[in-house]
Amino acid sequence: MAVKDYIRERFFPHMWCPGCGHGIVLNSLLRAVERLGMSKNEIVMVSGIGCSSRISGYVDFHTLHTIHGRALAFATGVKLGQPELNIIVPMGDGDALSIGGNHFIHAARRNIDLTAIVMNNRIYGMTGGQYSPLSGYGTMATTAPYSNIDQDFDVVDLSIAAGAAFVARTTVYHAKQMADILMKAIIHEGFSVVEVMTQCPTYFGRKNRAGDAVDMMEHMKEITTPIGSKAKEKNPDLLERGIFVQKEIPEYCQEYERIIERAQADVS
């Protein structure tokens, strides 16, 4: 099936700003799904609130556009309610790790088979440029006019600490790597986290004099390096990208099937 067969074409052009990286995430995600040869009927996309969450309107899957921060909680109900479905949960950085931080760490700990994509543009875009828990110290935002004194989370470290079975980081500059990683994340049985560094030229870029979309994407190339590269040894400040964790641990819905067996054995 061609990539365009996975989209709801009548809603294009999309509502994201010129230069926004979210469209690249959509592109790589659809290529991943296409390469996996998945049927549209077996995929549910669950999203929350924010620019990133509008992605669910553009894909021709079963789509559930929920409330701010709670996408993973809704997705947990969908998955446990019908474990045969594949659930993809794209979230923004604020959605996933500020208001939704509790659901994020618990979904990881529970190891339920969901694919969480954190579209990290380090800003609240929909509301006009407020700092998020991923903006980082020293950044500027409409709510940090004297510069931000909040420290940021490292999505990868946080996910590993919370017990996620699959943890990866990539960027919209590395669109092919992103498709490859997303493919692996989707087929991994367990809770998968993919952090995708993406750009918001409209708010983060302007506030932080980061240039236009091309400048911001080139910057992602400059500040990242593949996991275990020599460049990282020379420059420890580089952010690694690639798959950090890929482990087989008991998946929640499969474990629940055993609970049903135990409960039924008790009765009979």
Binding site: V46, H62, L64, T66, I67, R70, A73, F74, A75, T76, G77, V78, K79, L80, G81, N102, H103, H106, Y256, I259, I260, R262, A263, Q264, D266, V267
Partner: peptide, 25 residues
């Protein structure tokens, strides 16, 4: 689970409400 149904203790009250909506769908 005795009847093949599902029970889940969620991480908070909000998540419980969200999860039943997802499961209803």
């Amino acid at each position: 689970p005795q009847q093949g149904g599902k029970f889940i203790q969620m991480e908070d009250e909000i998540a419980s409400m969200c999860a039943i909506i997802g499961a209803s769908l």
